[in-house]
Design a binder for these strands. Structure first.
Lengths: 371, 371
DNA sequence: TAGCTCTATTGAAACGATTCAATAAGCACT
DNA sequence: AGTGCTTATTGAATCGTTTCAATAGAGCTA
C-alpha cells in the first residue's frame, strides 16, 4: 500500500535462517572482525570510524542479527548464565528470593538456569553436573535445608566458579553467603511479645539440623535474660529434623497440641517460622482458642501468605528479595574480579530482620486469661 | 597410605584446567572422532569394538571429562535448554507449575532458563530476545495475566521454536497450550455449594481480561439453570482488570465489603480464585461473619496456601504440577518431531479440575440464617 | 580374484563468534 | 627521509565439539 523504496519481498522476513555475523559483514561491506568489534563495543572500537560503526549497526538491525550465544561463549569463555539452585522451591519463602535473584540478573543481562534439588543429595549432585556442563559463570545456592557441602566446595572452587549461598553458610572461605541476623530476629520476636505484656510464652524451636535454629533461640534467651523473663522449659518444644518443607506446618500443629495437653497456660506462642505458626494457629483454633483474642502467635520469615492468612500473621521479616539481589551482587563482583584478574575474597553478609506487626498478636491485657 | 599403581600426584587433581575431548582421545589412544562417537552413543557406535568403548569410557571417567555444552551446541544446534517464562512468579499458583516443568525437564536432562516478565510487556520482549540468543530449543510461557501475542507468535514460529502456553491460549495453531477445563470447574464449585443446601449465593467473577473468567462463569450459569437456581444479580460482582497478581486478594476484600453493604443476605460465596476467596474471608471476618459457620466460601486453583490457611479453603483444584509436566511433554514431542523431520501439529490440552473439600464450606442447615 | 558387505577407526571440515598480530595510511617530529 | 605515533581495518587462528566422507582390513560370495 504505502510506496517505499524497499523491495517488496525481502529475504530476511521470510526465511527462518539464522543471520550470522558474516552476513552482517558482507551486507555492510566490512570484515567480520570489524563487525565483532563494533557490535561488542570492544576496546578496539575506539579506532573505528563513526561512519563505519553506523553502517554496521544499521546492517545488523536491518537483518535482525542476533549473536549466537554459544559461539560467543566458546571463544570468550563467558556463558552469560548463572546457576540458581534451590533445595526446595516448594517452600513459600523461596519465591521472593527467586524474584530478587532474577531481577538482579536481569539488570546485568544474565540469565538464570533454574535447578531444584527436591532436597535430595543425588539430585543436587546431578544438577551441579548439568550446571557445570552448561558452564554457568557462577552458582547461587538457596539452601533452606541441609546440604552436603563437600562436593559443592570441591567441584565449584576447583573450577574457579564463584558461588554464594543464601540462608546457609559453609566452612572455609571459598563460598560467599547471605543470611539474616537470626539472633537479632529472635530477640525482636520475643521483645514484641514482651512489650505487649506477655509473660507466659510457649516456644516452638527450629529443628537441630537447621542452621537458623541455634542463633534464633540464642537471641530469644539473651533477651529473656536481659529482662529477667523466665522461660518455662515445660513450654518449650523443638521441631524434629525432616526433609519435607511442609513439615513446619505439621510440626507446628503437633507440638502445639502437645503443649495444650500439658495444661500449662500460655498467652502467646513464638514459632520458629511462619509455617510453624500456621500449624500452631490451626491447632489452637481447633482447640477452641482464638488467635489473637486468647493467644498471640508470632512467626518468622514473612512468607507471602502471612499477609493473606486470617488472621494475618505478625512475624519477623527476612528481606528475602533483597537477599537474592545481594547474592547476585556478590557473585557478579567475583566474576568481574576474575575477569580483571583482581583478587577477591568471599564475604559473609548479614541482613537485618524487621518486625512486622499484623493481626495475630495483641496486648496481654486484652487476652482472656483462662481457657 | 594405601599403595596403588597410580602415580602419587596426578595432573587432573590439582589443575583447574578444563579436560577436553582431545585429552580423553590422547589418554585412551584413539582419535577424538571415536571418543565423540562412543561418549554420545552415536549411531556409528554400533561399529566400535567393545574393548575400545571401555577404554575410552574409563579414560573419560579418570580424567573427569565433562563435555563443553557450548561447543557441542555450536556444532549440533542443540542447547539442551528450554526457556520458561512466567508472567508473574509472585502469583502463588506459579510455584507448582514451575515444579512440574522443572521435574519433567530433569527427566530429559534438559535445563530450564528462567524468566519472569513482571507483567511488563517490554520485559517480556527483552527476555524473549535473551532466550533466543541463548538458543533455547523450546519455550514455555505461563501466562496468568494478559500478554501481547503478536510478537511471541511471530518471533517464535519464524524460528521454528516449539512453544507452549500454560493457562492461556493463542489464536492460530502454531502454539500448543494446556488449560484447566474452566467450565467444568465452575460447575463443580456451584454444585458443591448447591448440594450443601446453599441457595443464596454471592459471586465474585473474574476480571474480563482473564481468559478463565468467561468459561468459569458459564459453567456456573449452566449448572444454575440445570437445577433452576436463580442467580441474583445483586449478589454478583466482578473483579476489575489489573496487572497486579495481588489484586485478587484486594478485589475479593473490596467486593465482599460491597456485597455486605447491600444488606442482601447470602449463606455462601463463590470466589473467582483462591486469592479472591482469602480477601473475601478477610472481609467477612472483619464484619463479624464467621467462616464457615455463618457463610461458606469456595475458591478456585488450590494454591499451596489454601491448605494452610485458617480455615483451610474448600476449592476447585487445578492439577498445576501435572500441567507443567504436560507442557514439557508437548514441546519435547515437538522438538523430537523436528529432529526426525516428522510432521507435528500443536495441540490444546484440557485437564480436569477437582473439588477439594476443606473447612471453609459447610451445609446450609448448619449455617446461621441471620447476620 | 574381483566384488561386496561389515566392522572399526579417523582426518578434516564445519559451527559462529572473538582476538591477536599484521597491514597500511596519514601526520608530525627531528 | 627516517622514525614513531595514531587511526582504521582485516586475515587467520582459535574455542571444543560433531559428523561426513574416507580408509582399510576381513570375511563372504560367485
Amino acid at each position: 500500500m504505502v510506496p517505499t523504496g524497499d523491495p517488496p519481498l525481502k529475504r530476511e522476513s521470510s526465511a527462518s535462517s539464522t543471520v550470522t555475523m558474516r552476513d552482517v559483514a558482507t551486507a555492510s561491506g566490512f570484515s567480520s572482525a570489524t563487525v565483532s568489534i563494533v557490535l561488542n563495543n570492544a576496546p578496539l572500537a575506539r579506532y573505528i570510524a563513526p561512519a563505519t560503526k553506523k553502517r554496521i549497526e544499521d546492517a545488523a538491525k536491518k537483518l535482525g542479527y542476533r549473536p549466537n550465544a554459544m559461539a560467543r561463549f566458546l571463544r570468550s569463555k563467558r556463558s552469560h548464565s548463572i546457576g540458581v539452585m534451590f533445595f526446595d522451591i516448594t517452600d513459600p519463602y523461596c519465591t521472593p528470593i527467586l524474584r530478587g535473584i532474577e531481577n538482579a540478573l536481569y539488570q546485568s543481562s544474565y540469565v538464570p538456569i533454574f535447578a531444584d534439588a527436591h532436597n535430595q543429595k543425588n539430585r543436587f549432585e546431578r544438577y551441579l553436573e548439568m550446571l557445570l556442563e552448561h558452564h554457568v559463570e557462577a552458582l547461587i545456592v538457596v539452601a533452606n535445608w541441609l546440604l552436603v557441602d563437600i562436593h559443592l566446595l570441591a567441584d565449584v572452587s576447583k573450577r574457579n566458579i564463584p558461588a554464594a549461598t543464601i540462608c546457609w553458610e559453609l566452612d572455609g572461605d571459598t563460598v560467599s553467603s547471605v543470611m539474616v541476623d537470626n539472633e537479632m530476629g529472635g530477640r525482636l520476636a520475643l521483645e514484641h511479645l514482651y512489650q505487649l505484656g506477655h509473660r507466659k510464652i510457649a516456644y516452638i524451636r527450629g529443628p537441630k539440623m537447621l542452621i537458623d535454629s541455634g542463633p534464633r533461640w540464642k537471641g530469644i534467651q539473651k533477651f529473656a535474660q536481659s529482662v529477667k523473663l523466665e522461660i518455662d522449659p515445660a513450654l518449650v518444644t523443638q521441631l524434629t529434623d525432616s526433609f519435607d518443607a511442609n513439615s513446619g506446618f505439621e510440626g507446628g500443629y503437633r507440638f502445639t497440641e502437645e503443649l495444650l495437653q500439658k495444661k500449662k497456660r500460655f498467652t502467646a506462642l513464638l514459632a520458629f517460622d511462619d509455617l510453624t505458626a500456621f500449624g500452631a494457629i490451626r491447632a489452637l483454633t481447633k482447640a477452641g482458642i482464638k488467635v489473637p483474642e486468647q493467644c498471640s502467635v508470632i512467626g518468622f520469615d514473612d512468607v507471602p501468605l502471612s499477609a493473606l492468612s486470617a488472621p494475618s500473621l505478625t512475624t519477623i521479616r527476612q528481606p528475602l528479595e533483597t537477599m537474592g539481589g545481594l547474592a547476585v551482587q556478590m557473585v557478579m563482583d567475583s566474576i568481574n574480579a576474575g575477569l580483571e584478574k583482581r583478587d577477591w575474597t568471599s564475604s559473609r553478609q548479614r541482613v537485618t530482620p524487621e518486625l512486622v506487626i499484623r493481626d495475630s498478636t495483641r496486648a496481654a491485657s486484652q487476652t482472656a486469661a483462662d481457657d
